[in-house]
Write a protein that binds this DNA or RNA. Structure first.
Lengths: 340, 340
DNA sequence: ACTGGCACTCAATTGAGCCGAGTGCCAGGG
DNA sequence: CCCTGGCACTCGGCTCAATTGAGTGCCAGT
């Protein structure tokens, strides 16, 4: 059935008013605040239908209406238009990110910026190793049988791991291995490395094989174990702004935010497309986050996606504004990364 | 005036009961729960005096008494004895920390452990660069005029910085510089490096001088700028456990926890002595934390202090238990670091 | 198909009244 | 001199009932 225009307009108005006032909105105030050109009684009739269809909901008889998750969903899909950032905001984005020194700094600044713009909790994933390429590998001898393996990726990440070798290894051997693995792995996508490492092991000189085996193990672990993923968080204080929304307490939310695995899942839908994802209320599988919405996006240099970032807030959030902010920041971070 | 025994016992009892029940404690329940061997009337008289002296406080007429910050202070200084960790807890500490792989892992595990043991917010500072020694410096050429400087300290920290050189530098030159700076700086405390760098610049071959100058600048900045300090946080969800304590909202607390500078200040009193520090309520200079107490300690291998860690909670906290946990964890982290 | 009007519902607010934990003080006893 | 038992008093918090008012649903009229 083609949803009729007026009812859509009413839903839109309800969402807007509710987001602004945080209070159930009634038919009368609706007609007053918007140019609906019909009487409140008519609005009431339409609202009754909208409720039946599950888009809005009445907390109790004799209260106004509140959008349901389904209502918000319709709103973001069909009723809202992205509202562009203000000039001041746009300028803030540039000023904030242009001063960044290295990757750590970029990520930190980004997450703060996002939290500030949206006045919500912001999450930024470091460029994922699995989506990066090896730029350089360095072996640093610590003691005779201990190396530090330092890996630098094209996204600027630097990872280090301790490698325990099965026996003593001389300086020349270290140099040889260093040259060897750089030859083999430089420029490779990290996802390709497992195969490459296999062939590497076959080719390497026999004397170096034991040491190389330890080394490869560490390298592989780095990729497999999701310890590789890092995440930055900011703006948790913003949760208190909506204390009332989060029925009861924000305990479960804070708990969820402490679990890296959960955060990764939140940004997880970010696949190769850099499209914006929105998960509203129930659409979040994570228990504690049923009352929140997540707006996330992939980012990366020149259309390439190397990680995700996003924002978390109450379902009752300013979607158009948040979407605009997330999109703008994601795009600009991509540009900044491309410059390095 | 020598504070009389009984009054002290009463204060101790008040603190204990209040911490446990979270409710103002009255004279009658006090005599019932503790072996005070006097009547409630006597207790009342003593309480009146304690109140006059500022150790306890009555939220309103006809309510029980609540310890003041001054009361807690007396309690921790003279009235409490550290309560040793349970065997299970002790075991948890060992199990938790023994599995750690590298420094990042140690710090992460530590902060989680601390949060879990104390059921409070835990803060751990990474080993401070300024208190560490250089173990190795590595120069990795990225492009002709760009180097990555990687510094490894004896505490296991690995810091990397991008260095922009004034001109192209050949591979041999890089090797030469690498050898040179390692000779000069390996083993040096980072606090000594400014002087060493000066002499280095005087001694280095003329052709390398411009490049070395850039390098030194970056090295010095790393130390000066306090960007060097890193911090890990865990257990913020525990704040909600005491939601009622934090009059109004925990907004200011969450805000404070987001500022690294503030966190560093919290652990800041940690000087060369590894002593335990306790700041109660008002004793915190930071505005938002007037209702919280901080228990912190230095840690490091073999009596050496390389960083701070601590716990933040409501002034009404279990001091003996918290102190024990912080002390135990600090000591054990020190041991773990010593092993590497 | 829309509007005006009316009866109805129910959360939230207000205020009175009671309850009881807790105090302060005082007179009496070891 | 210090402690105790007793008594009057205070006042926050709870309960209960009454009131208010925003908002609805429905129906008859245009």
């Amino acid at each position: 059935m083609p949803m009729d225009e007026r009812k859509l307009a009413i839903l839109r108005a309800i969402v807007q008013d509710y987001v602004e006032t945080q209070e159930p909105v009634g038919s009368k105030s609706l007609v007053e605040r918007h140019n609906l050109r019909v009487s409140s009684a008519t609005v009431r009739n339409d609202m009754a239908v909208l409720e039946e269809e599950g888009y809005i909901h009445q907390p109790h008889t004799s209260a106004g209406r509140v959008p349901t998750d389904k209502g918000y969903r319709l709103f973001v899909d069909r009723l809202s238009q992205v509202k562009p950032l203000s000039i001041a905001e746009r300028r803030a984005v540039h000023r904030f990110l242009d001063g960044a020194l290295d990757l750590d700094d970029v990520v930190h600044r980004t997450v703060r910026l996002l939290a500030q713009l949206t006045r919500q909790v912001a999450v930024v994933q470091y460029p994922s190793l699995s989506r990066s390429r090896v730029r350089h590998l360095e072996l640093i001898p610590l003691t005779g049988s201990r190396l530090m393996l330092v890996m630098i990726t094209d996204t600027g990440r630097v990872e280090q791991r301790l490698v325990e070798l099965p026996g003593q290894v001389g300086e020349d051997d270290v140099l040889a291995m260093r040259r060897f693995i750089n030859e083999k792995l430089s420029g490779a996508r990290l996802t390709e490395t497992p195969v490459l490492i296999q062939t590497m092991l076959d080719e390497v000189a026999l004397t170096l094989r034991p040491a190389m085996t330890s080394l490869s193990t560490v390298l592989l672990e780095t990729l497999v174990e999701h310890r590789e993923e890092r995440i930055a968080l900011a703006g948790t204080a913003n949760l208190t702004r909506h204390a009332l929304d989060f029925a009861g307490s924000l305990r479960p939310i804070l708990e969820a935010l402490e679990e890296e695995v959960i955060l990764l899942k939140l940004l997880g839908e970010v696949d190769t497309s850099a499209a914006l994802h929105i998960r509203i209320g129930d659409e979040n599988e994570i228990a504690g986050l049923r009352a929140t919405s997540v707006v996330s996006s992939g980012y990366g240099p020149a259309g390439d996606v190397v990680g995700g970032l996003g924002v978390l807030g109450p379902t009752r959030m300013d979607y158009p504004g948040t979407i605009a902010a997330v999109r703008a920041v994601a795009r600009y971070v991509g540009e900044v990364l491309a410059q390095n």
